[in-house]
């Protein structure tokens, strides 16, 4: 690992400097994570008095549990939905801004601020707009003959949380797409235009392939966002319902552990999530290496 050629010589100072960070890391990150891993192999008796080592039993129960399998499925649908909606809209907006000469900064300012709105806050706003009795969208949908009720219909609830979660993430994706588009040399598109390629052809054969590193990076970031940072969206709106139709993994782990106090199962779920984060982080860092060569 790189450092400076010359370094300061001091016996205790570097340890003092790094101590606060390490203390927080060890006490609030490492120790609890280790606890979660250990507890995932244990089972508490009904009174919480003694624990016994049960090996992989918690995991076996977990993957045989239809509710957990449902949560896995819901998470996949939700993650793909959020990623598709927020990446798609952001790319469209970034392509449009890329054409603007004078108004680009104004549009950018008007599009980036939702990043600052808390997911819980945007969840409540969308919840309000879709309120089955007084909300504006159910009112409009009713006119075309659709009876919207996210309290009863799983699909409605899923659409609602996907919209709310995507709304927050569009500005982030937009900024990275704009930066990606600006880094594509104009000469390439000009050359294609001279050779007679129209705007659509140029998009598919030049812009999109050259944007692929940005797209891939955003794909990973959006997966992480949808899987881990949307707890607030779910908790502030549907609470996993109706009938588990929006019960994503991070919500379930909270609900089973913190509300249901099922220590073994919750820990096993934590460990599964841990593996997902590790896999996504590895992919993300492998991508950073690749981008340097690109």
């Amino acid at each position: 690992m790189s450092t400076k050629r010359n370094t300061f010589r001091h016996r205790t100072l570097p340890y003092l400097l790094i101590a606060p960070q390490l203390a927080v890391t060890l006490v609030f990150f490492m120790w609890p994570a280790a606890q979660a891993v250990i507890q995932s192999f244990e089972q508490e008796d009904a009174f919480g008095l003694s624990t016994t080592w049960v090996g992989f039993q918690n995991y076996q129960t977990l993957f045989a549990d239809p509710e957990y399998l449902n949560a896995l499925k819901v998470t996949v649908v939700f993650t793909l939905g959020v990623t598709a909606v927020s990446l798609g809209l952001a790319l469209l907006l970034a392509l449009a801004v890329d054409r603007m000469v004078k108004s680009a900064t104004v549009y950018t300012t008007l599009l980036v601020w939702p990043y600052a709105v808390a997911p819980a806050v945007s969840g409540v706003m969308w919840w309000f707009m879709f309120n089955p009795t007084i909300g504006i969208f159910p009112y409009l949908l009713h006119m075309v003959g659709y009876d919207w009720n996210h309290g009863l219909h799983g699909t409605d609830a899923m659409i609602l949380v996907i919209l709310a979660a995507s709304w927050n993430q569009i500005s982030y994706n937009f900024l990275f797409f704009v930066a990606g588009l600006q880094s594509i040399p104009a000469s390439l598109r000009e050359a294609a235009a001279i050779d007679g390629a129209g705007p659509a052809k140029r998009f598919w054969t030049i812009t999109l392939p050259l944007l692929s590193p940005t797209t891939f990076f955003l794909l990973v970031v959006n997966f992480v966002y949808a899987m881990f940072n949307t707890f607030a969206t779910i908790h502030a709106t549907t609470q996993g319902g109706p009938a588990g139709s929006t019960n994503i993994l991070v919500y379930k782990v909270f609900n089973d552990g913190f509300i249901g106090l099922n220590l073994g199962s919750s820990s096993a779920q934590s460990v599964v999530l841990l593996f997902i984060v590790i896999a996504l982080t590895v992919v993300q860092f492998a991508w950073v290496e690749r981008r340097v060569q690109y």
Binding site: F28, F29, P32, L273, I278, T281
Partner: peptide, 21 residues
């Protein structure tokens, strides 16, 4: 050690962290 914290969001260690606190 510092790097690994990237992979440990609150969501994966809710109960034990709560207990420590």
């Amino acid at each position: 050690l510092i790097f690994v914290t990237l992979m440990l969001p609150v969501e994966v260690r809710i109960l034990p962290t709560y207990k420590v606190v």
